[in-house]
């Protein structure tokens, strides 16, 4: 459970994130999706309940252990969250420098590779303030994958982007999963993306995961709350899945 003041945001979330797959959490604005995502990397601690990653309960780690533990994660934030005072290249290089990965030359090469992946070659020397919202988000994306983490968390990666960039990001997520074998959790309310990138889909509603399954399960769901979100009404059973990461806040 997690509440801010009197407002209860998460209440009895029970969720297993399968390792090596791409999971998408959907839900309306203000349903607590971002809060849920931040629990997974220990940015927010639950008021009650546990967050387990690979058998480690995050609340048992002290500050230093948690900091080290997070090197396994890469996270792209809603508006990019780029460091204003650094260039694009310095932003992408940041996790490599902090985690002491590679020589200077190798890091430069990695930055180029990441920029290519998000189709932003030539933007190295620009400052975040010189980029459009979509470009900032793509740089944030490049920064999240730079140190090749096992777990990638994406906070609304395509919301508000043009259709072409949206396709690029969606393709990138699928490619990352295949190439890096990373466990990916994306939160979004963009239904087109959901079916393109998700192996598993969960719906967060009033602080709980009310529906979980594969995209085909989801297309045929009977739950009117999911139906309303999908914009239609159909029928199908739920599925259960094996677990690597477990988020269980009660």
């Amino acid at each position: 459970m997690k509440s801010f003041g009197a407002k209860v945001v998460l209440d009895g979330v029970d969720l297993d994130i399968p390792r090596g797959d791409s999971t998408v959490i959907i839900g309306g604005s203000g349903s607590g999706k971002s809060v849920l995502l931040k629990h997974m990397v220990g940015l927010i601690a639950p008021d009650a309940g546990r967050v387990m990653v690979d058998g480690t309960e995050l609340s048992t780690l002290d500050n230093r252990e948690l900091t080290r533990f997070r090197s396994r994660f890469g996270m792209a934030f809603q508006e990019g969250a780029l460091f204003d005072s650094m260039t694009v290249a310095q932003n992408i290089e940041f996790p490599l420098v902090r985690l002491d990965i590679g020589s200077a030359a190798e890091r430069r090469e990695r930055v180029q590779e990441c920029l290519q992946m998000v189709r932003l070659e030539g933007a190295e020397a620009k400052l975040p303030s010189q980029l459009s919202g979509g470009m900032r988000r793509r740089v944030g994306f490049a920064r999240a994958i730079a140190h090749r983490p096992d777990v990638l968390l994406f906070d609304e990666p395509t919301t508000g982007l043009d259709p072409v960039t949206k396709d690029v990001i969606d393709e990138l997520i699928v490619e990352l999963k295949e190439r890096l074998g990373a466990t990916i959790v994306t939160i979004t309310h963009d239904m087109e993306s959901v079916f393109r990138i998700g192996d598993w889909i969960g719906m967060l509603y009033e602080g709980k995961i009310i529906s979980w399954g594969s995209p085909s399960d989801f297309r045929g769901t009977t739950d009117p709350r999911v139906g309303a979100f999908l914009g239609r009404k159909t029928v199908a059973p739920h599925a259960s899945v094996p677990s690597a990461a477990r988020t269980d806040t009660a």
Binding site: S71, F77, F83, F94, G140, R143
Partner: peptide, 12 residues
């Protein structure tokens, strides 16, 4: 603007 969160996720 979540830059502090970003720092924390990048083990800083």
């Amino acid at each position: 603007t979540e830059q502090i969160d970003a720092l924390q996720v990048m083990a800083t």
